[in-house]
Design a protein around this nucleic acid. Structure first.
Lengths: 194, 194
DNA sequence: CGATATCTATGATCGCGGTCACAGAAGAGA
DNA sequence: TCTCTTCTGTGACCGCGATCATAGATATCG
């Protein structure tokens, strides 16, 4: 997988971890040992019991812990997953030794920061419909068919809705002709945007 | 202002910009010219017409544009504001030349990422009371008196509530004996937490 | 200093979405 | 295959918080 962090970590040999649903990758408060890349499946990061972020395939997690002594969050596999663990010390040494790679890492963090901020503003939208449309738009459903990679009920929780409200809103959007569905997880927002 | 990005940019001379409400700092699609620090006021970043982030005083914005050719977002002043523009090329040269500063910049981005994710956690809490208590706790109101630095109505919007609901929730917490107030902006959470 | 805008605050009403309840569909495992 | 779990989906009810209305308290500015 040509993930956008590929160049950053290509010089480091990761430890591969194969996880079952619910397996713990790291616990909040533990010493930081590594930065992780999701190869397959999903990993939920939670803080005080509530999910803060869901790491998708092709993304890193634990990036913020790289610069601190202890992990700020719990990381638990959502369903079967495969992650690569890149030892913290190797990564830090590598970044220090390769300024260009370091720049690329900063760029990667900046992109993730943007995504997180977009999610915050999404959460502030009032009304289930606005949030669902915003989510689908961010996912690219306005440019053509997209296929979401996780259960709709998880998405509902991610955008701060119950699954019931989410399903009802999807139906309403379809009835309005704004949204088309293909199977259970295929979506296409058509309608007078842009 | 001793912002936590101070050390990163201290070697670069910014261009000061004084803005009125609605003034455009940068437009999506334009060539990137600088990274910005908000000295005063607020700057709204939007993409495809919807707000992605509101930059507060003491924070940077345009960090992601630093690594690309063109701006990904519009930036418009929300009310009168003062921002410092640090020319992109100077910042890039500076970071390339000083690996340790580059690491510090990565660490800054990682901290912001953490903060953003904590905010996501807060936004997902259900119920006005839970969100208000979470906000006050994050602000340190469980450790003693704190004084918030912005109008309560703005805080209400930040945590996804109307100001009316926010005021009512504060009152309810005071009635319950969980919260004490000192003047309009002083708060202290007492009660069996921890 | 007085005029004006903003902030803080509370009450009444109403609609959205959470909760509860139920069920078919799909997937996992034996 | 059959069982069991999870996911997807819909309906009924009702409580929380958005909205509308109003007003005193503060802040701002000429």
């Amino acid at each position: 997988m040509a993930a956008d962090y590929a160049k950053i970590l290509e010089g480091i040999t990761p430890k591969r971890m194969v996880l079952a649903d619910g397996d713990v990758v790291m616990r909040a408060g533990e010493r930081v040992s590594a930065i992780f890349a999701v190869e397959n499946g999903h990993v939920a990061l939670s803080r005080h019991g509530s999910v803060v972020h869901v790491a998708d395939p092709g993304t890193l997690f634990g990036e913020s812990g790289l610069f601190s002594e202890t992990n700020p969050v719990d990381a638990v596999a959502r369903g079967p997953a495969v992650v690569s663990a890149y030892p913290q010390e190797h990564v830090l040494l590598f970044l220090r030794a390769h300024p260009e790679i370091n720049m690329a890492f900063s760029a990667y963090l900046a992109r993730r920061l943007n995504a997180a901020r977009a999610r915050i503003e999404l959460a502030k939208l009032k009304g289930a419909e606005a949030r669902v449309v915003a989510f689908l738009t961010q996912a690219g459903a306005a440019q053509g068919w997209i296929k979401v990679g996780q259960p709709l009920s998880h998405i509902a929780a991610d955008i701060g809705l119950t699954h019931e409200a989410f399903y009802r809103t999807l139906r309403k959007l379809v009835d309005k002709g704004v949204l088309e569905r293909n199977g259970r997880r295929g979506f296409w927002l058509r309608g007078g945007n842009e």
